[in-house]
Nucleic acid binder design. Structure first.
Ligand code: FES
Ligand code: FES
Lengths: 145, 145
DNA sequence: TATAAATAGGATAAAAATATCCGAAATAAG
DNA sequence: CTTATTTCGGATATTTTTATCCTATTTATA
């Protein structure tokens, strides 16, 4: 569904959000340990999120990654997915035709569009605040063990 | 969403189904031209579908690929997807945790499960017959141009 | 200002997905 | 039986994704 990069990006963002609420910046090392992802690769993804203004980075001693508290609720999963995987998932044809065009539909167009729109709606209506809260309260997890 | 291989596999299957209704076997060459896919790669995917008993191959002169007419309606998209992409799309965690486990859910588990189950339901309730018919009547297409 | 601690970012490497090539095996028809 | 045709399947190549490594740059603090 999503690329590995995107999966890591979402998990990392949730972890950063949780820590930002607690007033702590986190490093790629800590992040990758907590979400069980390759450190250097995760760092690259964080760079992309910074460039897209979804998270903040602070260089130098006592630096790290954070998200402004009052921005957390405004960051939707859709923003993260779009920043990393682009918007093929929102607009692309399910059978891989060059463009998804209602005037020249593939055989699964109408059925697929429903799923795709459902996913889009879900990603657009889910924000980092609620997800971070689920981690904080311990009802959800960012790694298997 | 699906791999290229899976997209080609679905498009090829629909094309084969349509031609099987018309009593014609088709070659990888004709298939790849009609669905706009790389020929040799498509041939490999067809082999996999044959091994999974979803389509039939006939070697030698006047051979080609076909689907028994009375099997076409019984072949669901879900069978093709499972044969090529496996069942991660049906069971896998949306955030890439090793397993999707209700007892140890990721933060998007419940929201994601709904989408995933919707996709599964769609793939399981869509068969090759209806899709081939849409191609035959010209209301849907297997390539862009 | 010097030092230590961090992220940024370019260069590479490894793995997986996508794609091509070619000879072997099978089969229909003459 | 021979020939032409066609799928099968192994080997290889290319591209994309995933992952690692190392140096430069930035910044807080002593
Ligand atoms: S044309 Fe294929 S999903 Fe719209
Ligand atoms: S645990 Fe992530 S989708 Fe179920």
């Amino acid at each position: 569904m999503f690329s590995k990069a995107c999966e890591y990006g979402i998990r990392a963002s949730i972890f950063i959000a949780k820590n930002s609420y607690e007033g702590r910046r986190v490093s790629p090392k800590e992040i990758s340990e907590e979400i069980n992802s390759p450190q250097a690769f995760t760092a690259k993804i964080l760079q992309a999120l910074v460039k897209n203004n979804l998270i903040n980075s602070v260089k130098g001693a006592y630096g790290g990654f954070e998200i402004e508290k009052d921005k957390i609720a405004a960051i939707k999963l859709s923003h993260i997915v779009k920043a990393i995987d682009g918007d093929n998932i929102y607009n692309g044809c399910g059978l891989g035709l060059e463009t998804c065009d209602e005037n020249h539909p593939c055989p699964v167009h109408y059925k697929f569009k429903e799923i795709r729109d459902g996913l889009k709606e879900m990603l657009e209506s889910t924000n980092l605040e609620e997800l971070a809260l689920d981690i904080k309260t311990g009802i959800a997890f960012l790694k298997t063990y």
